[in-house]
Computed example of a mutant assay.
Amino acid sequence: MQKDAHLLDYLAVRRSIPAFQMRDPGPSKGELEEILRLASRVPDHGKLAPWRFIVYRGEERARIGEELLKLRLAAEPNLSDELIEVERTRFTRAPTVVAVVSTAAPHFKIPEWEQLMSAGALCLNVLMAANAHGYVSNWLTEWFAFDTRAYPLLGVKPEEKVAGFIHIGSSDFPPVERPRPDLAEIVSWVGGSDD
C-alpha cells in the first residue's frame, strides 16, 4: 500500500487555532469556493447533501455581533464588560466565518443520525480544506448555534440545526499541541491478530 506522506504529516500535527488569534487575510471568494467545493466531498449516504453553507464576510459580521449582543443582554442584562465585548466580536474574530447547517430530515431510507454525522464530517472537511489553502481554522458552535431566536439573524431556517461555525483566517501564533487520548484507552479490538 502506497502511503501519502504529505497527508500523514498533516494529520499528525493537525490543530485548530483559536478564533481570537486570527487576523486578515482570509480566503478570497474564489479560494473560499474551492474550500467549500473540496469540503463537500464527505460521506453522504443516499447522496442527499443534508447540509448547506452560510458564509459571513465583511462588515455584516460586525452587525451580526451587535445583534447577538442584544439577544444575550435580553437574557442576561448584567453581563460584564468583558463578556459584552466577547459577544460583540463573535463574528469579527476571523475574516471569514462559515456556518455548516444541517438540513437533516426524516427519510424513508436514510436515518437522520447518518445525515447529522455527514454534517459533522463536512465541518472537519472545511477545516482541512482551509488548512490546505494555507489558512488557519477553528470549528466552534457557541450559544447561538442552539438558540433559535438567533436563527433569523444568522440565515438559519427553523427546521435546520447549526453543526458549527468554521472560523477561517491567518495567524502569527504557532499551533500549540494539546493532550490527546491514549490509544489504549479508546480502542477495543475484536478478532484478528497482527502480532
Rank of each mutant, 00 (worst) to 15 (best):
M1D: 04
M1L: 13
Q2Y: 11
Q2T: 12
D4N: 15
H6P: 00
D9E: 15
L11R: 02
V13Q: 10
R14Q: 11
R14M: 00
R15A: 15
S16Q: 14
I17E: 10
I17P: 01
P18C: 02
A19V: 05
M22P: 00
R23T: 14
D24M: 10
P27A: 00
S28A: 08
S28D: 03
I35P: 00
A39L: 06
S40F: 03
V42F: 13
H45K: 06
G46E: 02
K47D: 08
K47T: 04
P50Q: 09
P50R: 08
P50T: 06
W51S: 06
F53G: 01
I54M: 03
R57K: 13
E59W: 05
E60H: 09
R61C: 11
R61D: 14
E66I: 01
E67R: 15
L69M: 07
K70N: 08
K70Y: 11
A75D: 10
E76K: 12
P77E: 07
N78F: 13
L79E: 00
L79I: 04
S80I: 09
D81Y: 09
R88V: 08
F91L: 06
F91C: 01
T92A: 02
A94S: 07
P95I: 08
A99K: 01
A99Q: 05
V100A: 05
S102G: 12
S102H: 07
H107N: 13
P111H: 01
P111Q: 00
E112P: 04
W113F: 12
E114I: 10
E114K: 11
M117A: 10
S118W: 12
S118I: 07
A119T: 05
A121T: 04
L122Q: 01
N125V: 09
L127Y: 06
M128P: 00
M128T: 07
A132F: 14
G134D: 00
S137Q: 08
W139F: 12
W139L: 14
L140K: 08
W143E: 12
F144K: 00
T148I: 06
T148D: 10
R149H: 06
A150I: 07
P152Q: 09
L154S: 04
G155S: 08
P158Q: 01
P158Y: 03
E159G: 03
G164N: 09
G164F: 09
H167Y: 15
G169M: 02
D172P: 03
V176E: 15
P179Y: 03
P179E: 14
R180S: 11
R180N: 05
E185W: 04
V187N: 02
W189L: 08
